[in-house]
């Protein structure tokens, strides 16, 4: 049941618990999924609708939009890491590629932003597809290295080809134009990014509940077992890899137009690490965890900015403590606590 708030069970204990609980509630699986997915989507929508009441100025909108952009990447990356069990330390490369495709096509070639975005997404999709098979043959840390390498190569190309990209100092990006109006300012961007995020979450939840999702969970548990059961594991892995890369590219394109300026830092290694950290901190195999992870790690530096020199000391400590005491991530852990609390009160 609530598999989006609990990583696909490694331990037999967790599985058994799920099983017994499933027996005790007399609702069909479809109904449960519906309510759960609907519930999650409804609360996300609620947050998105209510949040602007608390956003006092353009800076607050900036933070909110950045959360949204990161969340889109992380929701996609979570499909790969949380469900397919494949790590990627190179997703900032895809993000950067999306951003720079939009930047270069609109700034140098005068293409419309709404045309450049799908071109970037498609290009990244094709690239991801091309490298997916050789790369995803690898496992564990070798896969981490390979994806890291891919990201680094993209980053190097972006920062070296200064005639096209402006080099390490970056380049300006024209404003996005929709129906003849230029998209500028926090509120407009807020709604665009919010809508894209909702779409990404909806796609992700649907994918998880589809046969593909079930196959993926099998993959995460044991690839060999899944193979024995007749699942074409490579095909599914490639598919999820491409989907997550495309989501990153779309977010990158939006980010480029939103910030009107792109630098190769968008594609660098530490940015990739940040995305993975958001997935893990929020909770692997939890779509809403991904959103929360993105929110927490985008907000945190804003809070810590006031601590000046101690910013990194505190950030490192928080990362360690959360992962030590909540190894499953914020959302699954808190959800389990809430469930336990609810059960106790019911009793």
């Amino acid at each position: 049941m609530a598999h989006n708030v609990r990583p696909s069970g490694y331990s037999k204990f967790a599985k058994k618990q799920t099983y017994t609980r499933r027996m005790s509630t007399r609702k069909s699986r479809a109904q449960m999924l519906l309510s759960e997915r609907g519930g999650g989507m409804a609360s996300l929508l609620l947050v998105i609708l209510v949040l602007p009441l608390f956003l006092a100025n353009d800076y607050h909108y900036d933070v909110a939009v950045n959360i949204g952009i990161n969340a889109i990447v992380v929701v996609g990356l979570n499909l790969l890491i949380g469900y397919a069990g494949q790590i990627s330390l190179g997703h900032a490369g895809f993000f950067g590629l999306g951003a720079y495709t939009s930047a270069v096509l609109t700034a140098h070639y005068g293409l419309h932003g709404l045309l450049a975005l799908p071109i970037g997404a498609l290009g990244v999709g094709v690239l991801a597809y091309a490298i997916a098979r050789p790369v995803l043959r690898l496992s564990g840390h070798y896969l981490a290295m390979a994806t890291l390498g891919v990201g680094l190569i993209i980053n190097i190309i972006i920062s070296r080809e200064a005639w096209l990209t402006g080099g390490p100092d970056g380049m300006y990006v024209p404003l996005l134009e929709v129906f003849g109006t230029e998209v500028y300012g926090g509120p407009m961007w807020y709604w665009i990014v919010a809508a894209t995020l909702l779409l990404a979450v909806w796609l992700s939840l649907n994918l998880i509940d589809s046969p593909v999702g079930r196959a993926l969970r099998g993959l995460h548990g044991s690839e060999v077992a899944a193979q024995v059961a007749g699942v074409d594991t490579t095909r599914y892995k490639v598919m999820v890899f491409v989907i997550s890369a495309v989501m990153a590219a779309v977010a990158g394109s939006l980010a480029a137009h939103f910030s009107e300026f792109v630098t190769p830092a968008k594609a660098d290694f530490s940015h990739s690490i940040l995305f993975v950290t958001m997935v893990v901190l929020g909770g692997m195999a939890s779509t809403f965890g991904a959103v929360v992870g993105a929110a927490v790690l985008t907000l945190l530096p804003q809070f810590l900015a006031d601590f000046a020199d101690y910013e990194h000391v505190i950030l490192g400590l928080i990362m360690m403590t959360v992962m030590i005491f909540m190894p499953k991530g914020l959302v699954p852990t808190l959800a389990a606590l809430a469930r336990r609390g609810a059960r106790r009160t019911a009793r």
Partner: peptide, 27 residues
């Protein structure tokens, strides 16, 4: 089967509370 919704709402509340902290009184 209200658990997921409750969890979601709880998280939503947390998120709003967190963001609310950044909001300072208008100058």
């Amino acid at each position: 089967m209200t658990t997921p919704l409750k969890t979601g709402l709880m998280l939503a509340g947390l998120a709003i509370a967190a963001l609310g902290l950044t909001v300072s009184a208008p100058g």
